[in-house]
């Protein structure tokens, strides 16, 4: 059941160029891997959608790339500050998979640590732009890392149940190679709970709200 609470910041840690923000869990349900939360971005009008990265006891942790005004504001919070957090939202990954392979690209690694824990630490394949970005691979057990210009699609093996998150071109390529793959998409959204119609994507020839029908969608 989704809830919105004001949670205290426990820690703000650097992971390569990314930021791992840990907050107290409060009474929030961590949800299913791939579900997301709306995090208040201090001083900004709209909250920011973030999938859960880790769910240590009594905490929720989110990994993000501080590249825009909202994520930069979130990167500047300090332990003891409080943030409104709303969730869990959307539909996460189905964990009913026989031979899982986690695939991540860049900051798309964010939901994979929590997913890995839920699936018993299966094999993972992660692609990053640089060695510095690849420091985030340490969050995912049993991960093989490729660095640009090598792409994760070059290292995919057939016959696996792929669960992926990453930039759109990567997800499209993975979906083409692996029909039935579970792909976690991203879209600008204002509310995260179906009100704004900002986050529509094409699903089966119609425009669906990613926050309601996704963010995890099955590749056709």
């Amino acid at each position: 059941m989704r809830k919105r609470e004001r949670l205290s910041v426990v820690a703000v840690e650097a992971v390569g160029p990314y930021v791992l923000l840990r907050v107290e869990r409060g009474r929030l349900d961590p949800g299913v891997p791939g579900q997301f939360f709306m995090l208040e971005a201090p001083g900004r009008v709209l909250p920011r959608p973030m999938s859960l990265c880790l769910a240590p006891p009594a905490e929720l942790a989110f990994l993000f790339d501080p590249v825009g005004p909202g994520t930069r504001a979130l990167a500047e919070v300090e332990p003891g500050d409080a943030l409104h957090v709303f969730g869990p939202l959307g539909n996460g990954f189905s964990l009913d998979v026989a031979r899982p392979l986690l695939v991540g690209g860049g900051i798309g690694v964010a939901p994979l640590p929590y997913l890995s824990a839920a699936l018993g630490e299966p094999r993972a394949l992660l692609g990053f732009r640089t060695e510095w970005h690849a420091e985030a691979a340490a969050l995912v057990p049993n991960a093989e890392v490729v660095i640009d210009p090598v792409l994760v699609t070059e290292a995919l093996e057939p016959g696996r149940d792929v669960l992926a998150c990453g930039p759109e071109p990567m997800l499209e390529a993975v979906g083409d190679l692996c029909p039935g793959a579970q792909l976690a998409w991203e879209a600008p959204m204002a509310c995260g709970y179906g009100g704004c119609y900002g986050c529509v994507v094409d699903v089966d020839g119609r425009r669906a709200r990613l926050c309601v029908e996704g963010p995890v969608l099955v590749a056709a």
Binding site: P69, P188, A190, C199, V200
Partner: peptide, 14 residues
């Protein structure tokens, strides 16, 4: 409806 992106936050609104 219109093509994505459909939402853009600005400094004092959206």
């Amino acid at each position: 409806g219109n093509d994505a992106p459909r939402i853009a936050e600005t400094d004092s609104g959206m």
